[in-house]
């Protein structure tokens, strides 16, 4: 990413107001398709803008695929979907060299990981090796096959889902790999009014078919650059450190420095969404639950959220 940073044209860098405006446009566009879930849409935009990936944990059928597609369409990006199964191979994810008999050359056939928005469905159903292939791409933003390295498109955001209803047929993600996801969120069921509205919208043509882009992938790249410049003052950095120390004191395994970095990034994006050029503790508090809860190891997952909540309550804000 350092290359991209260096190439950025600072004169044409958008203002934070423009970033905020972009986020509003995307989220309003997505909401034409997705009923409710306003917060989840914002969370995805934050992850997208902060160069993060997102883990959705939900029951099937609550609109995860639709949400990812709507985001991709809104930014005029490509959308790819990988259905993880127990027999999926790493090359099924990254792509493979195939021999072209006409040209007598091997040519690379891109796997589904080459997309701006990649939906990894039921990631915990695939064997660890295949999971690792995806996670490596998420971290490196590149695919290496037979010694040749290819970059994935920019922007690149993975939205992975975990199936938690059939835990006996899954390979749980190790904590080290969970750590790669910037945020983990839940969609949950729509409420009565939302579901009624939802049914009204899909009774005819599904609105996703007619969804138009409201921004370009380039806009997202610019926004990402701008967000790197959002100020994180020392009191805020200290606040994050204290929150992290608090989780470490309360859990078997607290938040890693990687988690703290992710939180600062997310808070920067959140500040920009609020058209603010500096991070305030509120941004941190807004992001810390979804950024940290899955990184904390305790006896059960609920307790991970409790640890974060307790940290928010007790760590004094400067």
């Amino acid at each position: 990413m350092t290359d991209a940073h260096a190439d950025a044209d600072f004169d044409s860098a958008p203002s934070v107001e423009a970033v905020s405006d972009l986020a509003t446009r995307i989220s309003e566009n997505v909401e034409r398709v997705i009923v409710g879930h306003h917060d989840a849409i914002e969370d995805i935009i934050v992850a997208l803008f902060a160069r993060g990936h997102l883990l959705l944990e939900d029951v099937p059928g609550v609109g995860k695929t639709m949400l990812a597609r709507a985001i991709a369409t809104s930014i005029e990006g490509s959308f790819e979907r990988i259905q993880f199964t127990p027999d999926l191979l790493p090359s099924d994810v990254t792509g493979v060299n195939v021999f072209n008999q006409q040209t007598s050359e091997f040519e690379f056939r891109e796997g589904p990981v080459f997309g701006n928005v990649v939906l990894g469905d039921e990631i915990n159903r695939a064997p660890p090796k295949t999971q690792a292939a995806l996670l490596e791409v998420m971290e490196e933003l590149q695919v290496t096959v037979d010694g040749v390295t290819r970059r994935v498109p920019d922007p690149f955001t993975v939205i992975a889902t975990q199936n938690d209803v059939e835990p006996d047929r899954t390979y749980d993600l190790p904590l080290a790999e969970l750590d790669r996801f910037m945020k983990k969120i839940h969609l949950g069921y729509p409420n009565e009014a939302e579901e009624t509205e939802l049914l009204g919208r899909v009774s005819g043509h599904h609105p996703i078919e007619s969804l138009e882009p409201v921004a370009s992938a380039g806009d997202v790249r610019d926004a990402r650059e701008r967000i790197l410049d959002v100020t994180v003052s020392e009191p805020v950095r200290r606040y994050v450190s204290r929150l992290a120390a608090d989780t470490r004191a309360r859990a078997d395994l607290g938040v890693s420095p990687r988690g703290s970095i992710a939180l600062v990034r997310a808070a920067q994006a959140r500040a920009a969404l609020d058209a603010r050029d500096y991070v305030v503790p509120d941004d941190v508090q807004r992001e810390v639950r979804s950024v940290w809860a899955h990184r904390i190891r305790t006896t059960d997952e609920r307790a991970g959220r409790d640890v974060v909540e307790r940290a928010i309550d007790t760590v004094a804000v400067e």
Binding site: V280, P281, D282, Q285, A311, I312, T314, V315, A316, V317
Partner: peptide, 9 residues
């Protein structure tokens, strides 16, 4: 103001 409460909230 509670300890974990931000000025804004």
């Amino acid at each position: 103001r509670r300890p974990g409460e931000t000025v804004r909230s």
